[in-house]
Design a protein around this nucleic acid. Sequence first.
DNA 1: CCCATACTGATAACGATTCTCATTATCCTA
DNA 2: TAGGATAATGAGAATCGTTATCAGTATGGG
Lengths: 178, 178
Amino acid sequence: MRIVISMGSRRRSGTGVEAATDGKGEARTALLRLGAWLEERGLKHSRQRDVIVETFYGMGGHVPVDGLVARVRALDARVSVATVYRTMKLLAECGIAVPRRFDDGQTRYEPSTGRSHHDHLICTGCGRIVEFENERIEELQIRVARSHGFEVESHKLELYGRCDRCRRAEPGARDPRP
Amino acid sequence: MRIVISMGSRRRSGTGVEAATDGKGEARTALLRLGAWLEERGLKHSRQRDVIVETFYGMGGHVPVDGLVARVRALDARVSVATVYRTMKLLAECGIAVPRRFDDGQTRYEPSTGRSHHDHLICTGCGRIVEFENERIEELQIRVARSHGFEVESHKLELYGRCDRCRRAEPGARDPRP
DNA sequence: CCCATACTGATAACGATTCTCATTATCCTA
DNA sequence: TAGGATAATGAGAATCGTTATCAGTATGGG
């Protein structure tokens, strides 16, 4: 399955104050948070990490590592694959990025600063990924788990299907004439 | 993460008539279905496929391919890895087995004859896998998808957490004395 | 029994990710 | 501001699960 990167709709706050989200501001926030996190544990920061974080936030959405590598290398050809993998892992650890593994076997990362938990709708036609939240489902999950003696730590909910666009463009649409 | 194979509870019919499910009867059903399916499309059947199906049903639960390979080879050392992979794919195609990919990167198969749809609870402590069904959650999924213009074809819901056993055995349990 | 053709086994290849290790960069201290 | 401890890097080898290749084998209809 080919998966295409796209954000669902960006949530905008009602105030309009902190709504500027072209990636730049978020990248800055992320870099600050990363800096603090590194310092706390005696780690160093580096040019590569900065480039990677900025590129990552510039891409937005659900970024596959190889795509990120390509973009980063357009800016600095010497950055190695290993470093990108290492850095993304780091970002995940410090809470700046969330790793996702859909059904195509590669890890994607999504920026997480200021974003709340959500699940995904994935179009099996065009690969579009849409995010959604549903409080009721979350509650039911917790309840079901509890009824089996489990305490939920995390979950994965992915809905695979065809988006409206793809369904419209599909054979089987009842249009007798070509 | 290590994942341990185990079925949730087997559903037994109220009649008690078709309740014999030690794997043998199911294996037979599966073999019959496979036979018919192969014949329909001019494919041939083979000793290897029989061995694999029987072993697979003998194991029950969520069977990782490498585990299946090991067991099959205990019966017939010449069966190759490739054949096991090929056969499991075949079984999936003809509806005898369902492939599952949890978060540890390997494909597991579960027997599907006479079993209905369900999702999974996975213990992050001991790897135990428990199955559950929840009609309400399914409904909500369909509704949420529809509200985003999607028509659901399939979904994946996995709840990760700690089972009661593991929680009991855990540090943090408030038992002041050892 | 024969033959077309599907199936098999062994192994190479694959894609995503991680590891290794020699080299380089960072940053704390004097 | 130089020195040094040590974290980070790059390049490529290694790993893991899985699939492809291809020559040899087995199946089953005629």
